[in-house]
C-alpha cells in the first residue's frame, strides 16, 4: 500500500498512517510519503512490531517504508 501525505496539515498525515497501519497484516508493506518525518510515530512503531526505513526524496519529502513484522 502507498500513502501520499504531502501537503496535508498535521495531525492528518499521522492519522492517515495510523489508519493504514491498523489494516496491515503480518508481512505487509506500507510506503508513506511525508513532508516531515513522523517523529512521534517512530517511537511507537518499534514497540508495536513494525520495522521502518527512511529515505530522503529529491523533492525534499521523505519516503518511509513500514513493514509489519512476524510474531
Amino acid at each position: 500500500m502507498r500513502l501520499d501525505n504531502r501537503g496535508l496539515q498535521p495531525p492528518e498525515p499521522m492519522q492517515r498512517t495510523l489508519k493504514a497501519l491498523e489494516e496491515m497484516n503480518i508481512g505487509d508493506k506500507l510506503t508513506i510519503i511525508n513532508d516531515r518525518k513522523p517523529m512521534f510515530l517512530f517511537e511507537e512503531l518499534e514497540q508495536k512490531g513494525y520495522s521502518y526505513e527512511v529515505n530522503s526524496r529529491e523533492d525534499g519529502a521523505f519516503e518511509i517504508i513500514i513493514i509489519k513484522k512476524e510474531g
Binding site: 495531525p11 499521522m14 492519522q15 495510523l18 512521534f40
Partner: peptide
Amino acid sequence: PMFSLAHG
C-alpha cells in the same frame, strides 16, 4: 492527537 497517536 500527535502526542497520543489518536485518530478517528
